[in-house]
Amino acid sequence: MKLSTPRRWGFRLGLALVAAAFLLPQLWLASISVKNKAGVFEFPPRWLPRDASLANYRFVLTRTQVPWYLWNSAKVAGLATALTLLAGVPAAFVLSRERFPRREAAVHALLAVQMVSPMVLLVPIYGLVAGLRLLDTHAGLVLVYASVQLPFTISVLKSFFDALPASVLEAARLDGASRLRTLWSIVLPLAAPGLAAVAIFDLASYWAEFSLALVLLDSQQRFTIPVGIFSFQSGYETDWHLVAAASFIGLVPVMAAFVLLQRYFVAGLTAGAVKG
């Protein structure tokens, strides 16, 4: 159906308004981050500050631990994602392709447990990690992250595996391929886009995770980006232009990844919820 010009512009305006509502706050953060202390309180507020400089970024990147927070986040998120997939892929494959007793019960249990937020379990998880002597280590964090995200990961992977054509697998079986070989050379290549979606979704969740990292880490050197930036708000006085610069640095990797990989992001987001 051809649209009349006013209606076409109506749609464009509507979309532009939506985009503005979600982008302007982020642009304001960027604006604050290149201001100096006086500029932050300038009245009337300016979007393009008079003497914009990258001094805040220089300070944050050279005099604070923010670069290490980024590294820590990358390391923890990467390792946790690897562990999640390593444990999750075989389990999801078996749950999808094999028939065995208690399988149905296990699938239902997974669906229920994946909804439980780790937030609820902060106290016992703290006790557990303390008991394992893994407080204030990235290993402890990785272990917990991978565990709490596994049910979701497995159920999404399972739905991807379920959707693969049975004939391909049947052919593999007739060829006498082992289960491992089937998974490695047939299933994984076919399910690669789904696998990528899950991996990216897990990475993003780990990158953003706050409450567990806050509770399980003590040494600032080991903080991840959310906890590190939270600690930028001082108890006595907060320099918002520095907080803004630090926050913006925290956003950049996620945004970059998101722009590059948004197709997978969205797939990961929908996959767990809306199945085929």
Binding site: L23, A208, I225, V227, F230, L251
Partner: peptide, 15 residues
């Protein structure tokens, strides 16, 4: 517009 909306969602909650 879609990217803009989702960009808000990928920002860590603390931020």
């Amino acid at each position: 517009a879609r990217l803009a909306v989702v960009s808000a969602w990928v920002i860590p909650g603390v931020l």
